[in-house]
Amino acid sequence: MYYDAMVSKEEVRALAQLARLRVSDSEIEGLQKDISNILEYVGQVGSIVPNKGETQVLRAQNVMREDILYGPATGLINKGKELLTAFPKREGDYAVVRKIIHKDE
């Protein structure tokens, strides 16, 4: 099953929106061409005929472990200060983020 891989300018804008990326108008046309070409190429996978019993589900297995501290194995123990230092905006030990819940007037 093949899809028409040509994406429209509106689709490129929608993708940028979904991906949380600001893309300038001057880039849209180039992205439209590049993404369309790449999708046309990778669309070849549609030609694969599944083997009997070969489902689309990944064979990867979940790995379980005890819910305990790793102790010295994890490099992040006692690294609170370093992690806080990495915050772009910080007040005390808190990361500053935009207020997103507003009271209805």
Binding site: M1, Y3, V7, V12, L15, A16, L18, A19, L21, V23, L31, D34, I35, I38, L39, V42, G43, V45, G46, I48, P50, E54, T55, Q56, V57, L58
Partner: peptide, 25 residues
Amino acid sequence: RRRIMLGTYVLSAGYYDAYYGKATQ
């Protein structure tokens, strides 16, 4: 940015089976 958008496309609801699903298989 190009690869993030491409990844977003192949994982989006309408195209997931045709791209990501087929590729996994």
